[in-house]
Simulated assay, not measured.
Amino acid sequence: MTSPLLSPRELHEALGSVTVLDVRYRIGGPGGRAEHERGHVPGSVYVDLDTELAAPPGRGGRHPLPDTAVFEEAMRRAGVSDDRPVVVYDDWSGLAAGRAWWLLRFHGHRDVRLLDGAWPAWVADGGAVATGATLPGRRGDFTARPGQLPVVEAEEVLGVPVLVDARAPERFRGETEPIDPVAGHIPGAVNVPTTTNLRADGRFRSPEELRALYAAAGVDGDAAVAVYCGSGVTAVHDIVALELAGIPAALYPGSWSGWITDPDRPVAGPTSGSP
């Protein structure tokens, strides 16, 4: 199996032969374009998560999967081609860039890697820093073919043998809910927060460590696994970790924000949170 990750050193050696996408993003904050222009991996093109990697909010949650044509055009505009490897990164531990990694693979790109350690690791490793806006050297020819990775929809979620909630423990327990209008979690889910996937230096734990981490939560690969989070974005971090551990996992794209749009769906834990 090819690792879903690429180290800063490997990216340094590959520059010029890969397409690099900068997917900086913060929940509730401005887009990452300004941060990109202040400093980025040379040649990397900024991609906006809200407008290019998600559809408008609605019954599908805060970040529904983008329309296929919209995503394909965004990737072509960023220079993505079918026959050229892609590397994605952010400055948020891979929590936003993982969305681009997953979407490209879901739509059929065969060679996509996530920069391990994200932007801080690139800088710490002595990687070159470019400033200003970056335009792709050429328009890409990427052809989106959706359906290449597994997903589960709302009507299937309660039947998933092992359902993983990737949110912070206090949100999972329903003790606090700073974003969505209802607190709690989907009944039957187990909690493996994205923060536990990483070592102190911000890079992913070893496959052996990840297998032990998920096994402790009852995720051992013997039964089908699906992952969700608040809006279907950061859940991919757990999917990356599970892939490193050798455990395939599906994504519930609507996640918690989509689940609670139907008041008839069951909720475990408190049933109200911050508006």
Rank of each mutant, 00 (worst) to 15 (best):
A100G: 08
A100F: 05
W101S: 05
L103F: 08
L104H: 09
F106S: 07
F106W: 15
H107W: 06
H107E: 06
G108T: 01
D111I: 03
D111H: 02
D111E: 13
L115Y: 11
L115F: 04
L115H: 13
D116S: 07
D116K: 05
D116R: 12
A118T: 10
P120L: 05
P120N: 03
V123A: 14
V123P: 13
D125A: 10
G126R: 11
G127Q: 13
V129M: 00
A130F: 04
A130N: 01
L135D: 07
L135Q: 15
G137M: 01
R138H: 15
R139Q: 11
D141F: 04
P150T: 11
V151W: 15
A154H: 03
E155H: 15
E156A: 01
V157T: 12
V157S: 13
V157Q: 06
V160D: 01
V162L: 09
L163G: 03
L163I: 08
V164D: 10
A166W: 09
A166L: 05
R167W: 02
R167N: 03
R167T: 00
A168F: 04
P169F: 00
E170V: 08
R171C: 06
R171Q: 12
R171T: 06
F172L: 10
F172R: 04
R173K: 06
G174L: 08
E177T: 10
D180M: 07
